[in-house]
Design a protein around this nucleic acid. Structure first.
Length: 249
DNA sequence: AACCAGGACGTGA
DNA sequence: TCACGTCATGGT
């Protein structure tokens, strides 16, 4: 149950301009990211060969994806597989699934559980992830052309707040801001939230500070991840984060 | 050789 | 509610 009524914007009230400045700074530093990466783009789609990994499916400043129902399902699969796992490992699993023609819910449902486990093994936690993929497949098939609510996503086993928001933002193109471990690390390092801030508090910080625009949300989250990969891998490099210049008085 | 990766869930206090 | 263990493969 929720009972927070008194909580008038929780103390982050003064940070709205900062959140917007950070966006501009990140765009200068890293440019458009072209998320969510797909294993294959439409023939006329642009690619970004500067990205690491075998999957070249980034599409900077092109917000027309997903363009097919299978691409939509591929994003959903990726969102589940990337839980606490590096994207390079997820790519391997995705390519395995692609080879099985498993970017369609019907195929995932029909596939033997052991086969599915073998396919997703590179992404780790393969026992649970295989089962949860099947759950997702059944749910997605039942969904038809409807847009899911966040609540119904959270009801599915294996879908927590971040995965739900990722699916809504990148597969369904709805303005739900995604908060991941990188985002948390950055905003705490910048002193914008407390160490013990929960998911929804950090999410609210962004959603209350910028326009509720799906493109903006997609770009912001992707840039935060890119930025964190440069400055927030090792503890020692936090202090070198250029965003610190924005926060300093 | 620990530590981390684009988390979520079950448990017990 | 919340801290903690568990799930697992691979990079650095």
């Amino acid at each position: 149950m929720k009972k927070n009524v008194q909580n008038l914007s929780s103390g982050n009230t003064g940070h709205k301009p900062v959140i917007r400045e950070i966006y501009d700074c990140l765009l200068d530093l890293h440019g458009h990211q072209g998320w969510w990466p797909l294993t294959e783009l439409h023939e006329t789609g642009g690619i970004n060969p500067t990205k690491t990994g075998s999957v070249k499916g980034y599409h900077p400043a092109d917000y027309t994806y997903p363009q097919t129902r299978n691409q939509q399902f591929e994003i959903i699969c990726g969102a589940l597989l990337t839980q606490n796992t590096s994207w390079i490992q997820v790519e391997k699993a995705l390519l395995n699934l692609k080879q099985l023609n498993a970017f369609s819910p019907e195929v995932v449902i029909a596939l033997g559980l052991e086969t599915l486990k073998e396919a997703v093994k590179p992404a780790g936690y393969y026992n649970q992830k295989a089962i949860r993929l099947k759950i997702l497949a059944s749910w997605f098939l039942e969904l038809k052309d409807r847009v899911p609510t966040r609540e119904e996503l959270l009801f599915l086993k294996g879908i927590g707040p971040e995965t739900a928001d990722s699916i809504l933002l990148y597969a369904f193109k709805r303005p739900f801001f995604v908060v991941d471990a990188y985002t948390r690390r950055i905003v705490t390092n910048l002193g914008l939230v407390d160490e013990k801030a929960d998911y929804d508090e950090i999410k609210a910080l962004f959603e209350e500070s910028i326009l509720h625009d799906m493109k903006l949300y997609q770009e912001y989250h992707a840039m935060l991840v890119e930025h964190a990969k440069k400055y927030y891998q090792k503890k020692g490099s936090y202090a070198k984060c250029p965003l610190l210049n924005i926060v300093q008085d």
